[in-house]
Structure formats: structure tokens, C-alpha cells
Design a binder for these strands. Structure first.
Lengths: 342, 342
DNA sequence: AATAATTATGTAAACGTTTTCCTTAAAACT
DNA sequence: AGTTTTAAGGAAAACGTTTACATAATTATT
């Protein structure tokens, strides 16, 4: 009954103490805790009460060192600023954390700032056996440098397909997203359809653009350079882009292929008192709650944010258990959330 | 020049290998890496080249075990759903991560779901020497259970003041936030001012409410029960709350003391084609970018999100270095972002 | 009754660092 | 020349687990 450690002053008790208190070896304590071999019911009981008495909880670090697994996974997201687009990844982070917790894993959050240099730097941190696996949204650039790293621990890519490496990934069907949206616009009779996009290069932007082009093509509408404006994803840029389309083209509908640009576009539309959808029809990107609060509520392409996180987490866990299985490429559908802007 | 380990197949090299390669002891290698004692320039050089040759990087876990510090801090946020209010904390998380990275720390992200039970559970995970310190936004309830934990590692509370424990914390001056807002409304001639709030109990909600009451009092306006509606923070609830105020009161202005309720309120205003600010003036909460895109752009109370994270991180790091210093309570000002809704 | 199989547990090495002592060689004093 | 000081670095313990191997006690088999 003597509490050797845990004097209430922060001195933590170790497995050794528990073993002594219970009159068994540390091996037995360990096996009781982990259920890794048979232990007599009676002995178990002794161990449990000793653990209670000493207020014992196992040291994660020591366990990780010995068993070579930290039950922790890393996440690298490219959130430049904490603007709306950063929210996308933060929301994904949230759903990853949720899923991981279910299976007893922890999440280390990190940020590449959409810059491949800091991405590499972060990876280097992660090399040190701190994490068992990695989930990341690759920033623009060649990722073959990850090949070596990937031998050491599994990687799951999310949202964007990395260049130069083949790994598990969970992506969104961006192509079909915009394709469907443009299709809808055309069905409603629009023939001059503008397109506002974030910088090309990221697979997401490229695919969305491809969907736009293909939809036009299939309906025998010409692709016009001047109907496309490409801007950095920022509110100001969005305002500017929409203004440009308004002033320089005869578009009757606009598709905005990025959330923050969507927001900017709406600002311009408001400022100029453009009647949506009568004067101009519009479809935006990402089903954030605010898109419901504009006037009129926006029709948007909805990405399955939670599913991305969930599936990524699941994929990684599965990969941790079978390093040899074929790489999986999961493509999640995006859906058109029809409201009143088109 | 022989590479003993690191055969390119994922076998990692250890300090022992580096030592052998450089012809020194592991002690020397360690000291070179950490700069913990003088090592001759020449020896250093040998160690460095050996490290390069073997592509060595130290094992974090082993280091943590020995030195009893993981250079990792935990964060617990109460993000029930990934709605707009969850974004607030995610944004804080983002700025914490940023600051921590600067000083070489990692961030483990976790979520209490605004539920004190899972909060406790998470804390218990963290007991295991995984983290060196904790930042958390306490959920509603008594937190004296953390006293014991706090002896083991420092805690910094953010956004909300915890009940039952005195710790470092960085809060926002919620009182002054709403006080100023109501003051502005009164100055503009409003006498019947509605107030929509999230559930009381959280210190944030309480303080905002206090600011509202005090501002009325100081301008000799009566506090009217029926002008206050309290709802769970959800879009639907926001819609309902604003509808109720519209139908059952003669308010000419409304203050909404929560972001997601603000969003809901705007939806109702749009649906009913209420002219803002002419028919109804309004001030919302939190300066998210979307508040600029409503029609008209919303006047909002802006919380210093990034500063919260930065200061919390700084406070924790400082505390890690001096466990005995007096507890600090930092209160950050919120600012009125005046736009056109009032 | 002797041996084999089974059951329940213990001993000690190992994980990869950091850190406390030591040791050696050279330089600086008497 | 003998002693002390300083400079540079090595040997090995320690951190708290997990786990490979060993052992003792019991039961089953012949």
C-alpha cells in the first residue's frame, strides 16, 4: 500500500513501481496493459489495483522508442494565410483528427505555406521517427524527392496529385465537378460562360479547367481565351476578376473555380448591384455555410471535405498494416449544390 | 567511407554509426549536435561529414526519452462541428503552429467536441509525457480536475477563462467588444436594440452579454428580456432567432454575438428582403472574409485571432522556461470593423 | 513413475539518445 | 623536474518501455 512514487508532487510512477507494488515483473505488467500474452485473472487484478494505487499511466515516449511506433501521424497542409482556402484544409485536418482518434492515433499538424522548401524542411523533421505515417497535400512542384522518405513510412496524398511519385491518395473528381456545373449552365441556355480560376499548375485547378473546356466542347460551344481569367486566390483578386469579366465580355454566366475567388466575385456583384441570376448567372466553389447567406444563395460545387479526411486516415492506417498492398487512388465525387444563383 | 547502415533501403543510421565512422564516441557526436560542450573544430568537422555520409538524423523519440522533453505541445480545441465557429479555433490552431515552429516545437492537435468528458480523456492521453505543455480552450464546466495535471506540465488557456483553476491565459476583451458595438448603435440613435447570443455559461458569452447590458445602462436605456434571444450556435438557430426578433419586437437594431448566428441572421434578413441598415441595423461577430461579401457588407466585432495563437504559444514557451513565474492573464482587445450594416 | 506438454511468469537485453563521471595529454605553474 | 591546471573526449549508466528467451510449476501422456 506504500506509494513509492507519485507523491502528489508530480513525480510520476513507472512500470517498475507498479510491478513491485503488485509483486510481479515488469514483463507481466506490460503484458497486462497490452494484452500481449495470457496473464492469470488473479494476477491481472493485482496489476490493475497497483496501477490505480500508483496512478500509473505508461510513458508514451518510452513505448514508442522500444516498439518503434509512435501512434502519431503527421499532416502537412498548404495554408498560406488563414483565409477561406486555408479553411478547406483546416476542415480536412479536423476530420482526419477525428478519424485517427477513433483508432488511437494522434495528429501532428504542420504547414507548408504552399511552399515546397518549407515542405521539405518539415519532412526532414518528420524523418526522425516521430511519426508513423504522413498525410499531406503536396504543393506545386516535383515530389520525387519523397521517394526515399516513402520507404521509411507510408504517405497518403490528399486533394492534389503529386508530381513524380506514385502513392496512395484521395482526391476529388474536380473534372466532373466543373463539367457538371458548366453543363447545367448550358442547359439553362447560357452560351457565353466565363471562368475564373486560381493559378494553374496544381492538379485541382488543371482538372477543373479541363472540365470547363470539355463541357463547352461537347455542347459545340467555342472556348474563348478572353472568357477565362486566372488570378491568385484572394478576395481582391476575385473582385478584380469578376469586374474584368463584366467589363470586357458579354458573358451571361460565370463559373468561379475557387472559393475565395467566389467570395471576391460576389463582392463585385454586390457593389455593382448586378441581379443574380437574371443579369448574370453564377456558380461558385465549395459549400461553406456563408454561400447560403448571400443574396441570392449561391449554387456551388460541394467538395466532400469530411470524406477526404476520413478516407485519407483510413487509407493510411490500412497502409500501416500492409506496406506491400497496391497503391490506391481514391477519387471522391463532388456534388452540385443547387441554390438560386443560376 | 563505408556506409554501414543507410543502405538506401530504409535502414536508418544511428548515432553509434556516425561515431564509428567519425572515429569518436557517441558522447562527442551528441555534443556536436547539441552544442552542449566544447568540441575541437577538427573533430566537429569529422562528425559533420560522417553525418552527411550516413545521412544521419537524430531520433526524436530517443532524445525525448532521455532528455525528458518532446519539444511538442498539445492543443485542445472545442470544435463541435466544422462550422464557422469551429473555424475560429482552427484559425487559432494555425497561428499557434506557426509560432511554435519558429521556436522548434511541434503541435499535436486534438478536439474536445465541446464536451468535458472527451476533454478529460484527451488530457489523460497527454499525461504520458507525450507533450511538454498544453494549450486549450476549456469547455463549459469545472476545471479544477486539471490542478494535478498542471503540476506536471504548464497549461495556457485560450479564449475562455476556465472555472476552478488559475493558470496563464490569453483571452479577448469580450465585454468591451459588445459594449463598443452597442454604444455605436445607440449613438446612431437606436433605442430598441435586440441581442442574439449563444448559450450562456461560457465566459465569452457571459462577458459579451455583460457588455450589452452595461452599454444600455450607461445610456439610460432599459434592458428588456424580450429583446434577448439565446440559441445554440447553428445556422438554423440564427435564422430562427432573427425571425423571432423581427416578429415579436420593435427592434431597430440587432447585435449578434456569435459568428454562426450572425450568418443565420443574415439569411433571414435576405429571405425577408429586410433593408439593412435602413429597416434594421445590425452588427455581427467575427471578421471572417464572408462578412465583407454580404449585401451590405457587415459591421462586425473583430477578434484578434492570430494574436491569440501567437501570444498563447509565447506564453507557453516562456512558462516552460520558468515554471515559477507569476501566472499571466492576457486580455486582447477586439475591434469594431465598421462597414455598412449599421 | 517417468517424461512430455502446457501454463504462467520472470530475467535481462534492446531501442537510440543524453549525461555523469572519468581519463588522457598537453600546457602552465612552482 | 615535479605538480597542478586546462583541454579534449571517452565509457557506461540512465531514460521507461517491449520482447526474446528462459524457467518453474502444474497437468497430461505414456
Amino acid at each position: 500500500m506504500s506509494t513509492i512514487r507519485d507523491d502528489g508532487n508530480g513525480m510520476r510512477s513507472r512500470m517498475k513501481d507498479v510491478a513491485k507494488q503488485a509483486g510481479v515483473s515488469t514483463a507481466t505488467v506490460s503484458h497486462v496493459i497490452n494484452g500481449t500474452r495470457y496473464v492469470a485473472e488473479n494476477t491481472k487484478k493485482k496489476v490493475y489495483t497497483a496501477m490505480k494505487e500508483l496512478n500509473y499511466s505508461p510513458n508514451f515516449i518510452a513505448r514508442s522508442l522500444r516498439s518503434n511506433a509512435s501512434k502519431t501521424i503527421g499532416l502537412i497542409i498548404p495554408a498560406k494565410e488563414m483565409d477561406t482556402s486555408g479553411f478547406f484544409f483546416m476542415a480536412v485536418a479536423h476530420s482526419i483528427e477525428k478519424k485517427l482518434k477513433e483508432v488511437g492515433y494522434q495528429l501532428i499538424l504542420s504547414n507548408s505555406n504552399e511552399d515546397i522548401e518549407s515542405e521539405m524542411q518539415q519532412i526532414n523533421m518528420f524523418k526522425n521517427q516521430m511519426i508513423d505515417g504522413l498525410i499531406m497535400a503536396p504543393t506545386y512542384g516535383d515530389h520525387s524527392y519523397l521517394k526515399e522518405f516513402e520507404q521509411q513510412m507510408p504517405i497518403v496524398f490528399i486533394d492534389r496529385e503529386p508530381m513524380g511519385i506514385d502513392c496512395d491518395c484521395v482526391l476529388v473528381d474536380n473534372y466532373k465537378g466543373t463539367y457538371d456545373a458548366i453543363h447545367l449552365l448550358i442547359e439553362k441556355g447560357h452560351k457565353e460562360i466565363g471562368y475564373i480560376s486560381g493559378p494553374l499548375g496544381l492538379t485541382t485547378s488543371n482538372e477543373r479547367m479541363a472540365g470547363y473546356k470539355e463541357a463547352l466542347l461537347e455542347h459545340d460551344l467555342p472556348f474563348k481565351e478572353e472568357h477565362v481569367v486566372i488570378e491568385e486566390p484572394s478576395l481582391e483578386a476575385g473582385k478584380k476578376a469578376m469586374a474584368q469579366l463584366l467589363e470586357e465580355t458579354n458573358c451571361t454566366a460565370v463559373m468561379v473555380a475557387n472559393n475565395i475567388l467566389t467570395l471576391g466575385s460576389v463582392v463585385t456583384l454586390n457593389e455593382r448591384k448586378i441581379k443574380v441570376p437574371d443579369d448574370l448567372a453564377m456558380i461558385g466553389y465549395d459549400n461553406y455555410e456563408w454561400t447560403e447567406a448571400t443574396n441570392p444563395p449561391l449554387t456551388v460545387i460541394k467538395q466532400p471535405i469530411n470524406e477526404i479526411g476520413e478516407q485519407a486516415a483510413e487509407l493510411l492506417i490500412a497502409r500501416l498494416e500492409d506496406r506491400e498492398a497496391e497503391t490506391k487512388h481514391i477519387s471522391l465525387p463532388s456534388r452540385l449544390e443547387e441554390r438560386q444563383s443560376c
